[in-house]
């Protein structure tokens, strides 16, 4: 197996008394697409900043491309592409100039940057907007430009912090498509997200983080197999009757999860469980059988939902 591009051991970040990242261990292999899945405030962004060599760890070990960010910050940063949670495009520059100027920050020759900029604008589907002002771009376009910008130095690792947060569904799908292409070309992706569908689509392997700790690790499919059932039956009885109904549902399915607005029944066969429920004389207002998702994994591990 090739040497990992990122190795974190007992990685910890404290701000005063608050521990944002609490001794996490993970490795990322070259070409892998690795995700940190967790709710807001789980320590994902802090971890990304430490990996991006713009935040100093409090303790533990961290190696990026074989280098310690404490000693080799600029060397590491020159080989990373960073897509921050909030776009920080240069508003005073036009679309193509954003790429040219950013390339200069890495000290790259002008001719190389110009060639890459054109190819990247094509890739980001912005080739017809080269002279546009950044402010006039839509949210999805800004995100794609930020990604194009992060690729100008041909990074060995692309860091994406919540890449599709705040985008509408269509813009998200376009972005996923672009990121998937990068993955196919062998770019190492490290991304944080609190969207389970995003993690399922893009990550080969992920860690579930909560309160600065890693709760579980594996591929999306393996995590679902390990921590959830094949199917989930969602039933609603109305918010005031859910708790009462849950009492009667005991023994149905492998496991029950009672949420304020609905009850989740975990089972290999959701339809069969629904039949048993109707046999008990209970009549849910709505019912839905679906595949288990990472959301269920998270719920199982932490007792809470991802998006609160």
């Amino acid at each position: 197996m090739p040497a990992p591009v990122i190795t974190a051991q007992k990685l910890t970040k404290k701000y005063g008394d608050f521990t944002a990242v609490d001794g996490i261990d993970f490795e990322v292999a070259p070409g892998e697409s690795f995700g940190l899945l967790g709710p807001n405030g789980a320590g994902k962004s802090t971890t990304m900043r430490m990996v991006g060599a713009v935040s100093t760890r409090t303790s533990g070990d961290l190696q990026i491309l074989g280098l310690d960010p404490n000693d080799h910050g600029p060397d590491i940063r020159s080989q990373l592409g960073v897509v921050p949670q909030q776009d920080n495009l240069d508003q005073e520059l036009r679309v193509r100039d954003n790429l040219l100027v950013y390339g200069r920050y890495f000290g790259l020759p002008r001719s190389v940057i110009a060639e890459r900029a054109d190819a990247l604008l094509e890739f980001a589907q912005l080739a017809d907007r080269t002279k546009a002002k950044v402010d006039d771009l839509s949210g999805g376009m800004k995100r794609r430009l930020t990604i194009a910008r992060a690729l100008i130095n041909e990074p060995r690792i692309l860091l994406l912090d919540e890449p599709t947060t705040g985008l509408d569904p269509q813009a998200r799908h376009i972005l996923w498509d672009r990121l998937f292409r990068l993955k196919e070309q062998g770019t190492t992706l490290v991304l944080t997200t609190h969207y389970m569908d995003e993690a399922e689509q893009l990550c080969d392997r992920l860690v579930v983080v909560d309160k600065g700790r890693i709760m579980a690790e594996g591929s999306p499919a393996a995590l679902i197999r390990e921590y959830s059932s094949k199917e989930v039956l969602e039933v609603r009885f109305g918010s005031d009757k859910n708790a009462e109904a849950a009492e009667k549902l005991k023994g149905i399915g492998e496991r029950l999860e009672v949420l304020p607005d609905r009850i989740l029944v975990y089972s290999a066969n959701g339809e069969a469980e629904l039949e048993r429920i109707t046999h008990l004389g209970l009549e849910p207002i709505t019912s839905l059988v679906r595949r288990s998702s990472l959301e269920d994994v998270f719920l199982r591990l932490t007792g809470r939902s991802l998006i609160e």
Partner: peptide, 8 residues
């Protein structure tokens, strides 16, 4: 040129 970098 490919639009995006490859690790290779």
């Amino acid at each position: 040129m490919t639009a995006a970098p490859s690790t290779s």
